[in-house]
Design a protein around this nucleic acid. Structure first.
Lengths: 227, 227
DNA sequence: ATAGTCAATTGATAATTATCAATTAGTTTT
DNA sequence: AAAACTAATTGATAATTATCAATTGACTAT
């Protein structure tokens, strides 16, 4: 197991203030002064492909913001199979259930090398009781979790396998600006859509044959007009 | 269209204080004094079967607590079909996305006659900025939305139709204390599980034949040991 | 470069589910 | 109670997907 690397140590919020994804994330409304309230470090880490950010039923002490890469939230079934419950991309929050004092609800595993900022729960509680600037973003974050879950349910569980794979590809394509995106393994595609690995593979192969999809290494481009 | 009936007019929070489902709902941590902060009425309504509590894309001004009955959250597809995204039961909050200033994300339709309390968003914002007692319940509510969505995804989209119907029946059975529960129409079961009405009907009929399930009117009992 | 390993693909077949069509049961209206 | 609806059930068949098995391709570590 590769070890999680600290990428950037805490500098007292200076970096948070100028963070490039700040407007996507939790702290976008905070003012200069608010950062002086932070008494615990917010460190930045790199999670290598395949590593766990956290494990289901761990005591949840931290919320994470995703800065780059992709995280899958996984739930293991009794029969050894697994279901991917959601994908998290830059700007999303992981482990938001920590705010509730509960344990983590999923396994969070990096699909790509992923940079995250690790925020202690106490920091959020501290901020929330001392400035009015966090509440709105917090509500917005929860709401995003809800609407993501709904979109997921509606787009990825409706229609036959071919339609679901097509919807997944469009969803993944939305993630990335550069026109190409990380294509999960066929097993993960199966776990995302509730179909078998073989069915996922057949459909992806078919899309490639038809020229709807080009894959190189694990990166994919789609021809949106074909879907 | 039947009209929504006001069941109980606002009495300044007296009723909230002694509400029997208070410990399930949003206001469980509030103190006597906190209720004096409420300057807008929280009324109680009865929504008859089939009526809409709210409509997708309506401006969201109210959050609702479900006191009795059952609500389905529905998303209509382009092809005229629909998908039920979640079921809400007593103690659940409906329309929590109102707190975010957004529009409602679903159609909320009563499956049974349903009693709700209608809480203006301003009341929640008012309380939240004047007492520390609401924040925790609010976070807990959001978290419940998340974990409900996950349970839904894991239990109702995994396995073949028979397993999914069985899981749904177990899920519905959990709802009710009296050992019998409202059984949705076959069409709604289909929309809940992403299967056709006919498949839902075949499986329900089979369960009845096998003695796993008894149905009278729309109320059902199951023999849990058979699943 | 080569062997070894794991992921992806493909084939053949069985099982499941959708679709179309008809019939039966249950409710509501007259 | 009879008529009119609507929901539920069932049948026959086509389409989709899972399952089991084998092969091919891609990548890693010597």
């Amino acid at each position: 197991m590769k070890s999680i690397t600290i990428k950037q140590a805490w500098d007292g919020g200076e970096k948070c203030l100028h963070c490039s994804i700040r407007n996507l994330a939790l702290f976008s409304d905070l003012q200069q002064d608010d950062f002086n309230l932070l008494h615990q470090p917010i460190n930045e880490y790199m999670i290598p492909v395949g590593d766990e950010l956290y494990t289901e039923k761990d005591k949840a002490h931290f919320v994470f913001t995703i800065r780059s890469g992709m995280i899958k939230l996984v739930h293991y079934l009794e029969n050894g199979n697994y279901r991917i419950v959601r994908l998290l991309r830059p700007g999303d929050l992981a482990g938001i259930e920590a705010l509730n004092g509960s344990r983590y609800l999923h396994h969070a595993i990096a699909l790509q090398n992923t940079d995250v900022c690790r925020i202690p729960v106490e920091v959020i509680e501290q901020l929330n009781s001392n400035t009015p600037h966090l509440y709105k973003q917090l509500t917005a974050s929860w709401q995003k979790v809800q609407s993501d879950a709904d979109v997921w349910l509606v787009e990825l569980t409706v229609g036959n396998s071919r339609q679901r794979v097509a919807n997944l590809l469009l969803y993944l394509d939305d993630f990335s600006e550069e026109g190409s995106f990380y294509l999960p393994t066929r097993e993960d595609i199966g776990a995302l859509l509730g179909i078998t690995t073989e069915t996922a593979s057949r459909i992806i192969a078919e899309f490639k044959r038809l020229g709807f999809l080009q894959v190189e290494r694990q990166m994919a481009k789609i021809d949106k007009s074909k879907f």
